[in-house]
Amino acid sequence: MLELRLVQGSLLKKVLEAIKELVTDANFDCSATGFSLQAMDSSHVALVALLLRSEGFEHYRCDRNLSMGMNLGNVSKMLRCAGSDDIITIKADDGSDTVTFMFESPNQDKIADFEMKLMDIDSEHLGIPDAEYQAIVRMPSGEFARICKDLSSIGDTVIISVTKEGVKFSTAGDIGTANIVCRQNKTVDKPEEATVIEMQEPVSLTFALRYLNSFTKATPLSETVSISLSSDLPVVVEYKIADMGYVRYYLAPKIEE
């Protein structure tokens, strides 16, 4: 028996919007730790890892570990029927081939339940070791989204270069080139507006903008984003979900031939 009640149901709506472009079908794993997902895009170039910790739910009952295969487009269709202030409860019985999403309006005057068929999905879990990154950039998530969007109108790939002075995003295309430098800026009124660079050594890596733009669908989940870079690893783009967990995206770099 599984029963997860989330008063801030809008979080779940935002999570689905953040991952459904990248991944079509995925297994949601439920354990005592929390509600999680790890899935790669169809080309095995990008991976999304979601964690919503059990403590973040108002009620969390998960009698045994459960893996529920879902089409994310269909989950999104169901969750779009929930109001933005609704309380969302996810329910499933052991051995059942369906999951139920229950939506309650804040004053309890409207209760809806949507039952969705589960599917069998062969999931490929990657072991992702903890790593020391050469550079970690924290910046406003809206700024990062704007940069990715702007650069993708010029080129297909971005070179992200980190030095002590700042982080540079560069692209080149048929019509010309573009460089955007964000300097370290800790002295802002609000911490979420800061750009902070933790650097062990300078690093420069190339990535496909198409994927980074897809990651920025998570922008509504967090005011800030962190970008962790090492020359021999996929980049990690992390959006923290307040008090609950995170959505992390991993993207394999492009390498000069």
């Binding site: 170039v45 991976l47 990657l126 996929p234």
Partner: peptide, 14 residues
């Protein structure tokens, strides 16, 4: 020219 690498070049199946 740059070549797109895949995640399997970096991570192993768990």
């Amino acid at each position: 020219l740059s070549r797109q690498t895949g995640l399997y070049s970096f991570f192993l199946l768990a």
